[in-house]
Simulated assay, not measured.
Amino acid sequence: MDTPGTTVAVPSGRGEVQPLIDAMSARGMNVSWSFQPADWLALRDAVRRVGVPALVEHAARSWQAAKSTPYSARYFLAGWTGLQDAPAYTGPRAVTPPSAASTYVQQMAAHAAAIREKKTRGA
Rank of each mutant, 00 (worst) to 15 (best):
R27K: 15
G28A: 04
G28F: 02
G28I: 02
G28Q: 07
G28V: 03
M29A: 07
M29C: 04
M29W: 04
M29E: 01
N30W: 15
N30P: 00
N30H: 13
V31M: 06
S32T: 12
W33S: 03
W33N: 04
W33T: 08
W33V: 06
S34W: 02
S34G: 05
S34V: 04
F35T: 00
F35A: 01
Q36T: 10
Q36C: 02
Q36L: 13
Q36W: 14
Q36N: 07
Q36M: 12
P37Q: 01
P37H: 00
A38F: 09
D39I: 00
D39N: 08
W40E: 08
W40C: 05
L41D: 00
L41Q: 13
A42G: 03
A42R: 12
L43V: 03
L43A: 10
L43W: 04
R44Q: 13
R44K: 14
R44Y: 04
D45Y: 01
V47S: 06
V47F: 06
V47L: 03
V47W: 04
V47Y: 05
R48T: 12
R48A: 15
R48E: 12
R49T: 07
R49W: 07
R49L: 12
G51I: 05
V52Y: 05
V52G: 06
V52M: 05
V52A: 01
P53R: 01
P53W: 00
A54L: 09
L55A: 06
V56M: 06
V56E: 10
E57Q: 15
E57W: 06
E57N: 15
E57L: 14
H58A: 10
A59F: 05
A59D: 00
A59K: 09
A59T: 02
A60S: 14
A60G: 07
A60W: 06
R61M: 14
R61F: 09
R61T: 14
R61G: 14
R61W: 08
S62W: 02
W63K: 11
Q64H: 13
Q64S: 14
Q64P: 01
A65F: 11
A65D: 12
A66T: 10
A66C: 11
A66R: 11
A66K: 11
K67Y: 11
S68P: 00
S68I: 15
T69K: 14
T69P: 13
T69Y: 02
T69A: 13
T69F: 03
P70Q: 11
P70S: 11
P70W: 05
Y71E: 15
Y71V: 14
S72L: 01
A73S: 11
A73R: 09
A73E: 03
R74I: 12
Y75N: 09
Y75W: 11
Y75I: 08
Y75C: 11
L77I: 02
A78W: 09
A78P: 03
A78I: 07
G79L: 07
G79I: 06
W80V: 06
W80F: 15
W80E: 06
T81V: 14
T81F: 01
T81N: 09
T81H: 03
T81S: 09
T81L: 05
T81R: 13
G82W: 09
G82T: 10
G82H: 09
